[in-house]
Computed example of a mutant assay.
Amino acid sequence: MFSPHGPSLRELAVQALSSVERGYDLLAPKFDHTPFRTPRSVLTATTEALAELGPFSKGLDVCCGTGAGMSVLRPRCPELITGVDFSAGMLAQARAAHPDATWVRADVRALPFAGHFDLAVTFGALGHFLPAERPALFAGVYRALRPGGLFAFPLGAPPPPTSVPYWAAVGFDLAMRVRNAVWRPPFVMYYRTTPLAALRDDLAAAGFTTTAPALPALGRRRDGSPRCRLVLARKPADPR
């Protein structure tokens, strides 16, 4: 799973027993050598899909981490690209890799922007928010977008119950719940708390109109369903 340049088992254990913020500060220098980084194929498919939905001028990567989403925003948002995250360590890595972008340290549950961006994206971060926290996150993204702006993020199809990935996710989430019940500070990361139906409901409550087309470049499963969708949440052109 990890390259020789990735974190050791001991380093991962220390991270897992830290808070989310401190854990990612520790992991940041080696994060891009782990399987937790969004795969290039997903970034490329998202970039291609967004080409048909613009034009955009200013883009925001929510929970930007080390800046993988900049490869999506840069070709689509010629005026300004901004990343926001609460981990100083992750932002340091992102700033070094993408000095042309603007970087903001903030809690994304209280985004410090209003009507500034045409496009917002996020990659692989929603599992870090409990369902009760998503309304604040989505309300902040809504507020950060201009009227008519778009919030986009890929969402993989849930694995079937007969598969090994399904039970691996069940086991991971169970272990994380036990860990958080007996250890403080909590480390919030769950794989099974972001079903599409629940995300649609939370996005609608925030004011978005949402669709979720397939990302055809990422293929289909044996039953013909897409392996990955691109959730597209549009802020109305006239929010009133």
Rank of each mutant, 00 (worst) to 15 (best):
F2Y: 12
F2Q: 10
P4H: 08
G6F: 11
P7W: 10
P7G: 10
S8C: 05
L9A: 15
L9R: 15
R10F: 15
R10E: 11
V14F: 15
A16L: 11
L17G: 09
S18V: 05
S19D: 05
R22V: 04
D25P: 04
L27S: 00
P29Q: 13
K30C: 03
F31W: 12
P35A: 04
P35L: 13
T38E: 03
S41R: 07
L43G: 00
L43V: 07
T47P: 03
G54M: 08
F56S: 04
S57A: 15
G59K: 13
V62R: 07
V62K: 10
C63R: 10
C63Q: 02
G65C: 09
G67F: 12
G67I: 08
R74A: 11
P75H: 13
E79N: 10
T82K: 13
G83T: 04
M90K: 07
L91H: 09
A92D: 03
A92M: 08
Q93R: 15
H98W: 14
T102Q: 15
T102V: 14
A106L: 06
L111Y: 10
P112D: 03
P112F: 12
F113M: 04
H116S: 10
F117Y: 10
D118N: 06
L119D: 00
V121N: 03
A125E: 02
H128F: 06
F129R: 04
L130V: 07
E133D: 13
P135C: 05
P135L: 06
A136N: 09
G148V: 13
F153H: 05
A157L: 07
P159C: 13
P160Q: 07
P161Y: 15
T162C: 14
T162S: 13
V164P: 07
W167M: 03
L174D: 02
A175W: 15
V178K: 14
A181K: 11
P186D: 02
L199Y: 02
D201Y: 12
D202P: 05
D202Y: 08
D202I: 03
A204C: 10
G207P: 06
A214N: 01
A217T: 00
L218F: 00
L218Y: 00
R220E: 09
R221F: 06
D223H: 15
D223Y: 14
G224H: 05
G224C: 04
